[in-house]
């Protein structure tokens, strides 16, 4: 009860203070859907590949998004963007497979951010270990707007963390990796480490988690939404 009220309060403030129209719409959408079952909400599974893990130093390289509408993942609406960076991708290429030469035609960060928030206008963000992805988004917002915003998302890692903690006393962090979580739900393992593939993997994981929580039409948004 309290949690719901607190969410509502924060969102209302954000709607008021936000300067970016797209973001305003996003907060407004969240606010209006707090009590809706997830099945009625449009979700946007998202994954970002970066040059490293420090949001202050490292840069985003690629973003992949895939929407979930009517409780179904929509590959048709999936999108993938490469982002122009300063300097080189360096060693991180080993992980995400994006090389400097791929980035020659990439979009500037600002453009990508605008595109992303446009996507988010009427959708709720879903990510695995969302705080990392959102930190990077927030950091780039600071750069652009000189103002920091809270962002909200459904985090599939947190959902499984709660679930596993109920079953076991302690957790091994590796058991919360995306593929480890997927394995628990009998989902196939994807080997490619690509922003879009990971977004798809995360979306499938969420659907699986929801069905275990009593069905996608039973769980409401406010039960899952977290501030980051």
């Amino acid at each position: 009860m309290f949690q719901r009220w607190w969410l509502q309060y924060q969102l209302k403030r954000l709607v008021k203070n936000s300067k970016l129209n797209a973001l305003q719409d996003h907060y407004q959408y969240l606010l209006s859907q707090l009590d809706s079952p997830i099945s009625d909400i449009k979700l946007l599974a998202l994954d970002i590949e970066m040059t490293g893990l420090d949001s202050k130093k490292d840069q985003m390289v690629s973003i992949g998004v895939i929407p979930i509408i009517n409780a179904k993942i929509q590959p048709k609406l999936a999108q993938y963007k490469l982002i122009k960076i300063q300097g080189t991708v360096g060693q991180s290429a080993v992980i995400h497979g994006v090389l400097d030469r791929h980035l020659t035609n990439a979009l500037p960060l600002q453009e990508v951010l605008q595109w992303l928030f446009e996507q988010c206008k009427d959708k709720v963000i879903v990510a695995h270990y969302a705080s990392l992805d959102l930190q990077f988004l927030q950091q780039s917002l600071v750069g652009a707007e000189k103002q920091s915003f809270a962002l909200f998302a459904i985090d599939t890692l947190l959902i499984d963390k709660k679930r596993e903690l109920r079953k076991h006393q302690s957790l091994n962090t590796s058991s919360l990796r995306l593929n480890a979580c997927r394995e628990r739900y009998n989902l196939p393992i994807y080997n490619a480490h690509n922003a879009l593939t990971d977004a798809l993997a995360c979306a499938e994981l969420l659907l699986a988690q929801l069905s275990k929580m009593g069905g996608i039409d039973k769980v409401t948004l406010q039960q899952l939404l977290n501030k980051h």
Binding site: A71, K72, I73, Q74, P75, K76, Y185, L187, L200, A203, E204, L207, A208, L210, S211, K212, G214, G215
Partner: peptide, 14 residues
Amino acid sequence: CCQELTISYYSKQQ
């Protein structure tokens, strides 16, 4: 075909 697909998850509980 891949573009046109939609994806769902079905749980045994259902």
